[in-house]
Each structure stands twice: as C-alpha cells, then as structure tokens.
Amino acid sequence: MSDKKSIENFVVRYGQIRDEIAKEMIGQQDVVEHLLLAVIAGGNVLLEGVPGLGKTHLVRTLSKVLSVPFSRIQFTPDLMPADITGTNILVKTEEGNKFQFQPGPLFSSIVLADEINRATPKTQSALLEAMQEHAVTAGGQTRPLDEPYFVLATQNPIEQEGTYPLPEAQLDRFMFKVVVPFPTLDELSEIVDMTVKSQTQHACAVANAQDILEMREIARQVPIAPSVQEYALKLVLATHPELDNSPEISRKYLRFGASPRAAQAMLSAARVRALNQGRYNVAFDDVRYVAYATLRHRLALNFEALTAGEKIDGIIGSLLNLLSPR
C-alpha cells in the first residue's frame, strides 16, 4: 500500500512527464493526456489520424521521457507474425548448433504498431496475446514481457484500400482510441517554425519503469462512489441496442455495444484522471472525460446510422447527455 507522500507525489510526477512531452509536442494536449492516462492505467492505445501529425514522434518522446525500451513495427501486408513475436533461429555455439529464440520487436516496453490495419489479420492477431496478457508464445513457449508494457497502434482513416480493418476482438484490447486532430493555425505555425529553427528544448527522462508501476498501483487505490460506478456501468449498458431498456438512439443507430472490458477500462482511466486532477476520488466528470476514448472503438454503427451520416462521437455525446449523472 502506498504511503501518503507517494500519493501526493503522483500529481507532481504526472505533471513532470506531461511537461517533458510538451517540450517536443506542439499542441495535442488532449492526445497526450489520454496517452498518459492509458500508460498509467495499463492500457493500450489506438491512435487514429492522418499521416504527419506526429503520432510516431509522440510515442518516441514518451519512451524517452519514461526511459523505457521502445520499438516500432511498420505494419505491411507481407508482415508475418514471427516477424513481430520473434522466432527460433539456428545458431552455432561451442557445443554445436542449436535453436535459440530471437525476440521480435514485441519484446519491448513501448511498442509502436504503425499503420496496424495494413497487416493481415493473421499478423494483427499475433498482437492479441501481447496486448492482453503481456506475454508472447513462440515455438511452443510462452515468454512474459517486461512491465510496463504498452502497445500504441496507429491507423490512417483515409487510405482504406488494401487495408484490413481490425477485428472487434482486437479493438476491444485497446483501452482508448484517440483521434489525433489536425493542429490549429497557431500550432501549425509553431510546428513549421520548429523545422527551420534549431530545437532548443529536448525532452529528457523524468521517470522510469518503476515509477510507472508505482503510479499504476496508486491509481488502483482511488475509491469510487457507488453512484459514480453505477453511472459508468449504465453508460456501458446504454450502448447495447439489444437490451429492452436501452435508449432510443442506441436501438436506432448502433449495431452492438461495448463489452464489460470497456467498463473496466473506463473506471481504471477515470481513477488516474482523478489523481491527475488532484482528487482522491473519482467524479462523474472523470467518467465523462474518458467515455469518448473508451467507447468510440467499441461501438459499431449500423447501416441506418451510416446512411444518416451519424458519427460515433455524436452518439456517445447523446448518451452522456441522456444519462444524467445526478
């Protein structure tokens, strides 16, 4: 159990990490915020955004600030599972030739799966075990991955040709789906300026793997009032169109709803956010804040919603307005 000082230091350390990342990331505070929430809560993040928004740079900066091993996998259609999990190779030793496991890029603390939807489902599914159980099975042997373990996948929403949409089972493994917005005019201007000027500020490591694990443990202790927990659960249930008491908007526009894992992810992330806000309890606002990122990749629009031009964030917003916390 963490002592008071560690708990009180949580906000300080969190702020330090955020400030260091901000040195190299222009804007995108909301993306950074969600990324940090997921890292501390122990979840994976799916980043969706057009190329050139700094997704890879963000992850690289994060690994630098957290001073944990980082690996990047560029997903392509010909990428094989063994390419990412690792494989047994024949090596010559003094004792003779023998097979030795050569770890793949999954054996790292922060894994960037770039354009994950370009790989075949076979390769995509190779990530499942690593993402959920933080272990890799290859050659009949299961090997645990070092903690903290964090997969950050990106996908391009524009180029859909020759891509393989992620199956629902794999999407559900991501705690958040964060949409990376295009920078504002000021942010864009600052980014452009940065390319012609010599960068004066560089992010440096302010935390380590142990700190992340400790912060994760602290976050787990944050209490949640029954009414707040009930609100999160009702929100998840409200996304299920097949339930009798589900809202009209869910029945009308949703094909299926969020899984129980969504509720777990929502409350875990809300705990971290509460501490981040200097509170020692989860508030309704915390749940509402993380609801979009938690639910948007777990809900599927039906044909009627697609023809009506409905967006998943709009439906989540409607559900949040519909379910008044008080």
């Binding site: 963490s2 020692y280 989860v282 508030a283």
Partner: peptide
C-alpha cells in the same frame, strides 16, 4: 466533485482514505 459522498462511503483506514477525508 463527489468528494463528500465518497468520503462518507470510505470507512477503511488507508493513506488514500485519510487523504480523501482530509480533502
């Protein structure tokens, strides 16, 4: 921000609970 009702609900003696009550 749900501080009062959560504090009222938590009866355990842990550092987190103490901080919550104090807050």
């Amino acid at each position: 921000k749900e501080r009062a009702q959560t504090a009222l609900m938590i009866t355990e003696n842990s550092p987190m609970a103490e901080l919550l009550h104090s807050d």
